[in-house]
Computed example of a mutant assay.
Amino acid sequence: MTPTAERAVSALTIPPDAPFFIVMNAGSGRKQGDLTREILDRELGGAGRRYELRLVDDPAELAATARMAVEDAIQQNGVVVGAGGDGTLCAVAQATLGSGCPFAVLPRGTFNYFSRDHGIPAGLDESTRLLLTARAYPVQVGVVNGRMFLVNASLGLYPKLLEDREIYKQQFGRSRLIALFSAAATMLRAHRHLRLHIEHEGQMREIRTSTLFVGNNRLQLEQIGMREAPLLEQGLLAAIAPRAVGRIAQIFLSLRGAAGRLSDADNVISFAFRSITVTHPSKRRRRVKIATDGEVTHLDMPLEFHVAPEPLFLLKPEPEIALANRS
């Protein structure tokens, strides 16, 4: 579908008096919350638009706060806004999906893959101003056992990388350099390989891998050089699983990914799909650690990965502008 046709068929215009219900994870510090409120007052308040900023100090309260914001938005014909990194945005989006409410984001994370992929400006001033003019477009989300993800979901080594990264961030601060250093340190340590059965389109495949990674973000997949990246726009997800290799080979695979050449590696299995079922060969009920958009939890196998049957309606720039803004 051309960008013009997409606008004509899919875009939802936001009422000029729609209030914004903004849910923000305050874990990064009260100073960031104060700065956010100052910009919201200037950009939204200055334009005569009503908003409510709901700071969440306890991450355990994030989902409940998001659900309350959705209820208020439904009653007042408003927009639900997530402010934070990809994990926070996913939690707020999970509450919004299926509600009929438009969803918007104010990127405040380290990598911001979701917002960048949709051309939303990284600067808080610019992304706040966008709320006043943007229309809502349907965007695809992934689901694993009822848990939504905007960017990716994974099991195996990748959740361990995320846990270690949080420890490094608490000690040394939040930056991309710290995140990359943490990942290298984790991969140098010994780790167990997974034995998995993957059922896809009636076919069963057994693999041994350090991690199973399911991607729903074209920008992230393009950065590591996956050929499946364009297929996300056809309503598919992408599965990536490096074959069981040693630590040194694992690091070389990571370097290929950093260079945007992971698809060229012989030791990587990848394919696009609409739905897959992942089980353990023993068939016993197992509880596994899984990461969705950077947030680690435990889920029972089998794992059912699929594209959500309904889209999330995201406030974003017009298609031509969004494409130009992707970085």
Rank of each mutant, 00 (worst) to 15 (best):
C90F: 01
K316I: 07
A104M: 04
S154A: 13
F172K: 11
L106I: 12
I207P: 03
G45Y: 09
G202S: 09
G84Q: 05
A190Q: 08
D117A: 09
E295C: 04
M1D: 07
I207V: 15
A259H: 06
F305W: 13
S127P: 01
R116N: 10
I240T: 13
A244H: 07
L157S: 06
R208L: 01
D17I: 02
R108A: 15
S210I: 00
G84F: 14
P138V: 07
T133H: 14
S99F: 11
F20C: 01
A249S: 12
T279C: 06
F271Q: 03
V9Y: 12
D164E: 14
V9W: 11
E61F: 00
H191L: 03
G85M: 07
R129K: 15
L303G: 03
G27I: 13
I167R: 15
E166T: 06
D300R: 15
M1C: 02
L323M: 10
N152T: 14
R30A: 15
V151G: 02
R326N: 07
A136N: 07
P15D: 02
Q234S: 12
S327V: 12
Q75R: 15
L221Q: 05
L89F: 07
P107A: 07
R174D: 01
R243E: 14
A272H: 06
L40A: 05
I207K: 02
L236G: 00
L35P: 00
E318Q: 05
V143K: 05
A259R: 12
A134T: 03
F111R: 11
E71I: 10
I276M: 02
A241W: 01
S210E: 11
G119C: 04
C90Y: 06
R50P: 00
H298Y: 12
K283V: 07
S210C: 13
G202K: 06
P138T: 07
L262K: 09
V307H: 12
L219F: 06
D164V: 09
D72G: 09
E61T: 08
R30S: 15
N145W: 08
G260A: 07
L132S: 05
G29E: 01
A244E: 14
I224S: 04
G78P: 04
C101Y: 04
L194H: 10
A63P: 00
K283H: 13
E52P: 01
D17K: 13
Q250N: 12
S327P: 00
E228P: 02
P19H: 04
G27H: 08
S28F: 00
G84M: 09
A153F: 08
Q32N: 09
H306G: 03
L155R: 01
G48I: 08
A93K: 10
A122E: 14
V80C: 05
A185R: 15
P309H: 08
S254M: 14
Y168A: 13
G29R: 02
K160N: 08
A95E: 09
Q140L: 09
L132K: 05
Q76Y: 06
K283A: 11
H306P: 00
S263E: 12
Q140A: 10
R287F: 12
L323K: 13
G257F: 05
D86H: 10
L150G: 05
M226S: 10
N77Q: 14
S210V: 00
P230R: 02
F181V: 14
D58M: 04
G123D: 13
L44F: 06
N267M: 07
S99T: 08
D264F: 06
A185L: 11
